[in-house]
Amino acid sequence: MKKRLCWNQRTKTLILLAVAVFYLAGVAVWGLVGRESALVTDFSRKNLTPSLSYLFGTDWLGRDMLARTVTGLSISIIIGVCAAAVSAVIAGLLGVAAATLGKKVDAVITWLIDLIMGIPHILLLILISFAAGKGLTGVILGVSLTHWTSLARVIRAEVLQLKESTYIRTAEKLGHSKWRIAKKHMLPHLIPQFLVGLVLLFPHAILHEASITFLGFGLSTEQPAIGVILSESMKYLVTGKWWLALFPGLMLVLTVMLFDLLGECLRKLTDPGSVHR
């Protein structure tokens, strides 16, 4: 009975993981393929309410809001993947360096982490994005350079714990090289933490990209980004055009929740004990 329960929990986790990956990959591909349709204007169909023909309605220029929303989400997903990957690499390198290169290096990296975490997050993100010229490059740099701190702390703590473990000390006494110890004993423990941390960076990256774009410090208004869509829709809400903000906002929340679900599923699969919780 216990084995059957474990198998059911694992199957459920794998199914949820597959659904999340399928949805996110589908949105990214659909948005890239249908980018042109998101820019098409037709004044004969402007301000149409949601219907079977236009599920998310149309805006003041007659643009299909479903196509614009999916394209905006695909842009956010691509930015989130790039920014999270860069941020995770920074976190991994600095976390390992802090734990292995001595107290002075550890003190400098810890001070840098505390400094970045002490500055209001959105303010630092806006400053970096603005300094880098805004746009796609500015957003990716801003998100990448502000989201690595928490993961770096986790990896640093994990390495410090591994260094004090019995089997690492035994390997050192047996004369194994540091490279062999790191490759054979430390890396298998760090990879799951790194992958889960990487995936959990995605929702933060997507939300912050949308936030600074909404405030005017991110992507340009020519691009159908979610932040641009929500920002432009604000002045039309008072006229009763609720669908311009509702559906893009809901899709953004759904995407963020699925990335969070993806990270949780990976955590359960890489930590067998958590499947029973």
Rank of each mutant, 00 (worst) to 15 (best):
M1A: 12
R4S: 13
R4T: 12
W7D: 01
N8R: 13
T11F: 07
T11E: 05
V19G: 01
A20L: 10
V21A: 13
Y23G: 00
W30K: 07
G34E: 04
E36R: 04
E36N: 12
A38V: 05
T41F: 02
T41L: 00
S44D: 14
R45F: 01
S51I: 02
Y54T: 08
L55F: 14
F56L: 09
G57H: 12
D59L: 10
D64R: 02
M65E: 14
A67L: 02
T71C: 15
L73V: 05
A84P: 10
A85Q: 00
A88P: 07
I90S: 07
L93A: 11
G95V: 02
G95K: 03
V96D: 04
A99K: 07
V105H: 04
V105P: 08
A107H: 02
L112N: 09
I113N: 11
I113G: 00
D114G: 09
I119S: 08
P120S: 12
I126E: 06
S129I: 00
G133H: 13
K134I: 01
L136G: 03
T137P: 00
L141W: 06
G142N: 09
G142W: 05
V143G: 02
S144M: 03
W148P: 09
T149Q: 15
L151F: 06
I155W: 08
Q161E: 13
E164A: 15
E164K: 13
S165H: 11
T166G: 08
I168E: 07
T170W: 06
K173T: 15
G175D: 13
W179K: 12
H185Q: 13
H185Y: 15
L195Y: 11
G197I: 12
V199K: 03
V199L: 14
F202T: 05
F202H: 12
H204R: 14
I206R: 09
L207F: 11
A210W: 00
I212E: 03
T213S: 15
F214G: 01
S220M: 01
E222I: 06
I226C: 08
G227P: 06
E232V: 03
L237T: 04
K241N: 14
P248R: 02
P248K: 02
L252H: 04
L258G: 07
F259C: 12
F259W: 11
L262K: 11
L262E: 10
C265A: 15
L269G: 02
T270S: 03
T270E: 00
G273N: 03
